[in-house]
Design a protein around this nucleic acid. Structure first.
Length: 217
DNA sequence: TAGTAACC
DNA sequence: TGAG
C-alpha cells in the first residue's frame, strides 16, 4: 500500500515513496461553491486590495496577496508576521466571510481535523509567471492547527516535500475547486507552487486564486 | 532563502 | 527543451 497522503490524486512524478501522514487532497471539494467564494474574495479585496509584498531579503513577491480574518500574514523588510491591521490601508482586516469559513471547516473535518477554527485566511493571486518557492508555514502560534488550502482558477503544480528543505519533493496538480489539508506530522512540511502556466479559466479567467486558512493566533 | 540566477 |  502507498501512503494515503493526498489520496485520490496521483503524483505527477512516478516515484511512490511514502510521505509524512496527516495530509490529504480533497479533489473538487469546493467546485460547487466556487461562485460564492469568488464573490467573497471580491468583497475582501475591495476593502483590502491585492498587493505584491516584499520579502525580508528585499525581493518583490510574484504572488499578489490579501488577507481576511482576525489576523493576516504579512511580510516586509523586517520579516514575516501576523497582523490584525492591513499595513497598506491602516484599517482592520475585513472579517472572514461565512462562505470561506464554512468551506475551510468542512474540509478540515473531512481531513480529520474537526476542531479547526481558522482565524486567518491568506488569499493569494497568481497570474501567469507567478510562483512561490519552497517554504514552511511556521509563523503560526499553535502548530496543532492544520493548514487548509483551496484552489480556484487555472491549474498549478504543487510541490510537497518533507520537514527538511532538502527532503525529496513530490508534485501534484491542483485544479479548480481542489482543497488540500495538511497537519499533524506534516504540518511543517516544505511546500511551494511552480510557475503558473498561461491559460484561461472559464470561470476565474487568466489567474489562479488560492485561499489558505490558518490558526494564527 | 514565502528569491533569483548560473550552470550543468 | 525542460527538469532538477
Amino acid at each position: 500500500m502507498t501512503s494515503d497522503l493526498f489520496a485520490g490524486l496521483e503524483p505527477k512524478q512516478s516515484a511512490q515513496e511514502n510521505m509524512a501522514k496527516g495530509a490529504i487532497l480533497l479533489r473538487g471539494q469546493a467546485v460547487a461553491r466556487a461562485d460564492d467564494l469568488l464573490a467573497a474574495i471580491g468583497k475582501v479585496s475591495a476593502a483590502s486590495p491585492f498587493r505584491n509584498m516584499v520579502t525580508p531579503g528585499g525581493h518583490v513577491m510574484s504572488v499578489a496577496m490579501t488577507n481576511c480574518g482576525q489576523a493576516g500574514w504579512v511580510t516586509d523588510r523586517s520579516g514575516y508576521r501576523y497582523d490584525g491591521i492591513d499595513p497598506q490601508t491602516g484599517q482592520l482586516l475585513p472579517e472572514m466571510p461565512e462562505s470561506l469559513l464554512t468551506v475551510a471547516t468542512e474540509a478540515a473535518t473531512k481531513a480529520g481535523y474537526p476542531d479547526f477554527r481558522p482565524d486567518a485566511c491568506l488569499i493569494n493571486r497568481y497570474e501567469p509567471g507567478a510562483r512561490l518557492s519552497l517554504h514552511q508555514d511556521r509563523n503560526e502560534r499553535d502548530m496543532a492547527n492544520p493548514i487548509v488550502s483551496v484552489s480556484l482558477g487555472l491549474p498549478a503544480t504543487f510541490q510537497f516535500g518533507g520537514l527538511k528543505r532538502n527532503d525529496p519533493v513530490k508534485k501534484y496538480a491542483l485544479l479548480h475547486g481542489d482543497v488540500a489539508v495538511w497537519g499533524g506530522p506534516s504540518r511543517l512540511c516544505y511546500h511551494g507552487v511552480m510557475m503558473l502556466k498561461d491559460g484561461e479559466h472559464p470561470v476565474v479567467g487568466r489567474m489562479r486564486l488560492n485561499l489558505t486558512f490558518r490558526g494564527a493566533l
